[in-house]
């Protein structure tokens, strides 16, 4: 219980900090300019540090996975995506993981039946929930490009139109908002109701979920309920993009709460499990070819061994060997 309530209380406190700071202490400049810049610097520097740190770790050996047949004899049918032996096949494996969550698709749920027998069954809910969550978040983030650029890029415009396709409510309802909220609810509920997952869930699992949930919820509130004035918001965002330091205009407090929670998310990102965003590309079971049979991989930091071959031995002892009547290869 504590490991759920603690992160929930933390997110609530963070939201309250921003609310009190802006509503009562009038710290618009701190929450609108200073903290976002700091968070962005921490995010970029931390992210790069983490990735560089992982990149310089040597990975000398291939980790064979048993998901597909490795390239072997010609008449054995192989599986190019699951067990790649060329770079582009490995790239396809990484991309299928990143874009479609291939390995979650194989998720299997083990269940102890009433008669004490263990049953396994395919369980695609996590895959579907995760896919819905990540894709809707991506769409939401890309859609926000309309606040960051004076000339809105074409893809953001397209996403905006596609996302508000139903054209109901005013302003037009975004499908991705509903999907994101639904998926977050499912992912949290899954950690509550499945005893095994509840057991292994930590505060660091709940915190990002609550944080992102809070951000989305406040975004939804700003758009559909409070109907915030976006002109000063766009001014502020364009200013931040141009590294300006002017104080922000008259914006509703809810926006600062939204921005502060995002800043916290950015700063927290490199310190947390959220780094799987970059790490997935570096995962050795996905991005290395399974070609251990085809190619010999030598550990590059093995110390050099001085071998003494038989011909060198014979060169040293040839005369003595001849005297002793031993056969020699070279006369």
């Amino acid at each position: 219980m504590k490991k759920v309530l603690m992160p929930l209380a933390m997110v609530a406190t963070l939201a309250l900090v921003a609310y009190v700071g802006v509503e009562f202490l009038k710290l618009q400049f701190i929450f609108g300019v200073v903290i976002p810049y700091t968070a962005a610097v921490l995010f970029v520097a931390g992210f790069l540090f983490r990735i560089a740190d992982w990149l310089i770790r040597p990975v000398p050996f291939r980790i064979p996975t048993t998901a597909g047949q490795e390239k072997s004899l010609d008449w054995i049918r192989r599986n190019p995506i699951e067990s790649p032996h060329r770079a582009w096949e490995a790239a396809a494996r990484v991309l299928s993981e990143v874009l479609l969550f291939r390995s979650l698709f194989r998720n299997i749920r083990a269940e102890l039946r009433k008669d004490a027998s263990l049953a396994y069954a395919s369980n695609k809910w996590l895959w579907l929930g995760g896919l819905a969550f990540h894709w809707s978040l991506l769409v939401i983030v890309l859609r926000h490009a309309r606040f960051f650029f004076a000339m809105v890029p074409g893809f953001a415009d397209f996403l905006d139109h596609a996302d508000s396709f139903f054209d109901v409510t005013l302003p037009a309802f975004y499908i991705s908002d509903a999907i994101a909220l639904g998926a977050i609810t499912f992912l949290v509920a899954r950690r509550f109701f499945d005893a095994k997952v509840r057991m292994i869930s930590l505060p660091t699992d709940y915190f990002p979920l609550f944080l992102i949930g809070g951000i989305v919820l406040i975004g939804v509130l700003m758009r559909y309920v409070v109907r915030l004035n976006v002109m000063p918001v766009k001014d502020l965002m364009l200013q931040l993009m141009n590294f300006g330091f002017d104080p922000p205009g008259e914006i509703g407090t809810l926006f600062y709460v939204h921005l502060f929670l995002i800043s916290v998310l950015l700063a927290y990102f490199p310190l947390s499990k959220l780094m799987h965003m970059g790490g997935i590309f570096l995962s050795p079971t996905r991005n290395l070819c399974n070609n251990s049979r085809e190619k010999r991989h030598v550990n590059p930091w093995n110390s050099d061994i001085k071998f003494r071959t038989y011909s060198e031995y014979e060169d040293d002892f040839r005369e003595k060997m001849k005297k002793a009547g031993l056969p020699v290869e070279k006369q």
Partner: peptide
């Protein structure tokens, strides 16, 4: 003027 700038397009 403003609606283009803020990219808000009510119908």
């Amino acid at each position: 003027n403003c609606h283009m700038y803020a990219n808000v397009r009510p119908k």
